[in-house]
């Protein structure tokens, strides 16, 4: 069952990659990108990384892709065709897709999905209980990683102050 699901999403991932690459219209490229992002999220679920899967959908599909499609709708006609790619970019892109396909099918052949578990989980998570990575992440963030977490707050403050400084013109 897991093998089948993996095969399904790996194939749609590769298909989406090819779609981004070969589609003529910009809007179709964006839809192919949607397929790629959703397939990646599904693969994360298969790896029992539910938090990463959720943030993948929220950040990339819900945020970045929507922005991308909006900017396409505002800036160009939806029928507009993408300029043809130069030769070396075509070769490089196809090569990347080949390597990705190779890796995915390597995983397909080698990995036993039934026994696949995240190795870093607290001992309290037994096999009968559903695995909750969010709980583990929360405990880690406010446990061992508190300093890093606080300093991420400082990082965001820097960004806020910087944006305010760059955008606001001083009144004369």
């Amino acid at each position: 069952m897991e093998k089948f699901v993996f095969f399904l999403f790996a194939t749609s991932l590769i298909g989406g990659g090819l779609g981004i690459f070969l589609a003529q219209r910009l809007l179709y490229k964006a839809f192919a990108l949607l397929l790629v992002l959703l397939a990646v999220a599904a693969l994360f679920v298969l790896l029992r990384a539910d938090f990463v899967a959720a943030s993948q959908i929220m950040v990339y599909v819900g945020g970045i892709l929507i922005l991308l499609v909006f900017s396409l709708l505002f800036s160009a006609s939806t029928h507009q065709k993408a300029p043809p790619l130069p030769y070396w970019k075509l070769v490089a892109g196809l090569l990347t897709i080949c390597i990705g396909t190779f890796v995915l099918f390597g995983i397909f052949n080698e990995v036993n999905f039934q026994t696949l578990h995240p190795t870093i989980l607290p001992a309290e998570t037994s096999s009968t209980q559903p695995i909750q990575t969010i709980r583990t992440i929360g405990i880690t963030l406010f446990g061992t990683q508190t300093v890093a977490f606080e300093l991420m707050g400082l990082f965001l403050l820097v960004v806020l102050a910087a944006v305010a400084w760059l955008l606001v013109e001083k009144e004369q």
Partner: peptide, 8 residues
């Protein structure tokens, strides 16, 4: 702002 960013 710029002194604050230097300190950060």
């Amino acid at each position: 702002e710029y002194y604050a960013i230097l300190l950060f």
